[in-house]
Design a binder for these strands. Structure first.
Lengths: 124, 124
DNA sequence: CAGCATCCTCGAGGATACTG
DNA sequence: CAGTATCCTCGAGGATGCTG
C-alpha cells in the first residue's frame, strides 16, 4: 500500500479514508470506543486477538491522526484511557454503515461465495 | 492482516468490510465504476498509478467477492468490460460517505497534522 | 488490448520476553 | 497496568517483460 495518506490525497479521498482506517484493528477499536472511553487493558480484551504491540501501534496511529484521544494518568499502577475525538465521533455513521454492509455482504455472498473461496483453505 | 474475511466475520462486520474493500485501489476502482461500465484500459488510466498485475488482481478479487462483474468479449482485439453488481452498487452511499469523510479529515487534520507527519519524507 | 509469469521489496502484523 | 524491545513471517503491492 504505497498510499501514504499524503499520496492518497492526490488520488481520491476514499483512499485517504482507507489509508487512515484500513489498519487491522482500527475500525474495531473505533467501534468499541464509540460506546465509551476505555482503558488499554479493556480495549485489548474487547478487541480480542491482538497483541499489545500491535494494539499500541494502532492506537498511536489513530491518535496521531486525530481520531482518538489518549489520556494518561500519572499513577503508580499506570492508567491510560482512550476516547474518541470529535473527529473520531464523526465516524459513527460511517462505521455503522460499514458494519451493516459487512453483514449484508455476509448474507448475500458470504455463505455461498465465501465458502468456495475459503472453506477448507481457512486454517482450523 | 490476518483477517481473512472468514476470520473477520467472527470478530465484527466492520472488519469484513475492510478486508473486502481495504485493498489498495479497490475503493477507487469502485468509485470509477459507480459512474459506469469501464474497460480494463480505461480503468487503468482512470485509477492512475497502478500496474496491470495489481489492477488485475484487485479486479479479480472484487469479482470473486461479487462486487463487480467481468464481461469478456471474445474478439480479436480483446475487450473486457467491468461493471458493478447490485452488491457493488449498494456501496454507493458508503463510498460517498468515505469520500466525504476523507475530505473532511484532510480539512480538519490533513493540513496541520499530515504536514508534520509526512511533509518531506513523502517521496515525490 | 488485456492479460499472465517472474521476481523483488518492504513493512504491517504477530510472537515473545522484559520493565517502570 | 501499560507498555517497550526484538525478531520473524508473509503476502500485498510493485516493476518488468512476454503473449494470444
Amino acid at each position: 500500500m504505497r498510499t501514504s495518506t499524503a499520496e492518497a490525497m492526490e488520488i481520491c479521498s476514499v483512499e485517504v479514508t482507507v489509508s487512515l482506517l484500513g489498519g487491522c484493528w482500527k475500525l474495531t477499536i473505533i467501534q468499541k470506543l464509540l460506546e465509551g472511553t476505555l482503558r488499554f487493558g479493556e480495549l485489548r480484551r474487547e478487541v480480542g486477538y491482538v497483541t499489545d504491540r500491535v494494539l499500541t501501534r494502532q492506537l498511536r496511529e489513530l491518535e496521531a491522526d486525530g481520531i482518538i484521544h489518549r489520556e494518561v494518568y500519572p499513577q503508580v499502577p499506570p492508567k491510560v484511557e482512550y476516547s474518541l475525538t470529535p473527529l473520531g465521533e464523526s465516524l459513527r455513521d460511517m462505521v455503522a454503515m460499514m458494519d451493516a454492509w459487512g453483514q449484508h455482504w455476509a448474507k448475500e455472498q458470504g455463505v455461498g461465495a465465501a465458502t468456495e473461496k475459503s472453506a477448507e483453505p481457512a486454517a482450523v
